[in-house]
Design a protein around this nucleic acid. Sequence first.
DNA 1: CCTAAGAACA
DNA 2: TGTTCTTAGG
Lengths: 261, 261
Amino acid sequence: MFEARIKQGAVLKKVLDSVKDLVTDANFEADPVEGFKLQAMDSSHVSLVSLKLHADGFEHYRCDRALTMGMNLANMAKMLKCAGNDDAITMKADDAGDTVTFMFESPDQQKISDFELKLMDIDSEHLGIPETDYDVTLRMPSVEFQRICRDLASIGDTVGISVTKDGVKFSTTGDIGEANITVRQNSEDDKDKMIAIELGAPVSLTFALRYLNSFTKATPLCDQVIVRLSPNLPVVVQYAVTEVGYVSYFLAPKIEDDDAM
Amino acid sequence: MFEARIKQGAVLKKVLDSVKDLVTDANFEADPVEGFKLQAMDSSHVSLVSLKLHADGFEHYRCDRALTMGMNLANMAKMLKCAGNDDAITMKADDAGDTVTFMFESPDQQKISDFELKLMDIDSEHLGIPETDYDVTLRMPSVEFQRICRDLASIGDTVGISVTKDGVKFSTTGDIGEANITVRQNSEDDKDKMIAIELGAPVSLTFALRYLNSFTKATPLCDQVIVRLSPNLPVVVQYAVTEVGYVSYFLAPKIEDDDAM
DNA sequence: CCTAAGAACA
DNA sequence: TGTTCTTAGG
């Protein structure tokens, strides 16, 4: 028996919106201790998404034993769209069942819905997510990161990210020309606008913008995004799910990276 | 000679928006006593719409003798869109003419427009609208009814509506799973949010969501919708046109209904 | 917060 | 031309 209730249903809706464009089918894992999580590669097997919602992030969480639930994320998202933004959402599944139920309760309890989604068998490839210290940890407003990735994608296909202690330079080149966007570290009072760089060593790497732009679907989740970089390692783009967990994306750098900033 | 003036032109615009998606061409009837009305089947001949605007709902109403005016509703809507929402609208037609004129007057009389629409000959099939007492009369916020029909249509094609004295359950089934939405009767102070059930006997019927979703195009007309149900009879979905009349829709139930709630 | 209308994209 | 996304309004 698995049952988890989140009061702010809008959070779960946003979480799903942030993964459904990247991954079509995936196994969710409900774990008695670790909570509710998902790890999957995108459909083209290039990038990787890791989602974790801690057990104690839920208003109520019960999971008798670990459960793997294979879902079509588009269909799951379709159902969650039927929840009002103020509704509480409860997910339920029997240990031996082949469905998961989403229950929506309006704040005044006047309207109660339950949506039952058929589960599917999905081969779960095991995914090696590197546990490392990164040379660079960058924090910046998630909307700003989204804007940069979107803007550069209109010029070129890849982005070079070069970080020094002063700032970050995002660069691209395309048929029509080239573009560089530099943002500086600040010590903003306003935490939402903060740009902070933790730097072990300067780093310069190149990534496919197409995937980064998919990652920014998670922008509505939180005000700040965290980007971690190390040479020859996948970049980590991480969004906090307020009070509940996080969504992280991983993308290997292009090898033909030039080290110059 | 027919001439009818309505001060709140926006009402007439909304009325037309609520029928034009369902019916392409139809005969309006102007009657000296009964007012301005329309009865028509939708283009696929499955559902039926009945619109009535009472003579005394108009600021001014003159109709020397009954007049049938065949109009293309899309074209009529196109013209009415040209009226400002605060404009007064006057409809005029000669007894022997083949056009109808819509005159729009801005509140300050600064702008006066008249649009002349060509009438067309339309075979008027006679429509039998059942005059009955219904087992169930359900009143609920029109936006909530709209939301339920839209949400369920993303899962399945038909909706089962089961009414007991406590509440109403809307259910559907589709390829990806199933869904149930239950709303409870309340005694809300706020009349707009009222959900009221008048129940002779419990009823359970099934309808095609496609048509119900067309009906909900009338949602902007008023805050509350009235749904009347009886076994083996078409459902009536009725929207009041404030102070002026109503728009009613009729749709026969699916026969393969199971009676269980 | 939710809807509807407009604008931009495919 | 149809669909989607964004924005403005209720």
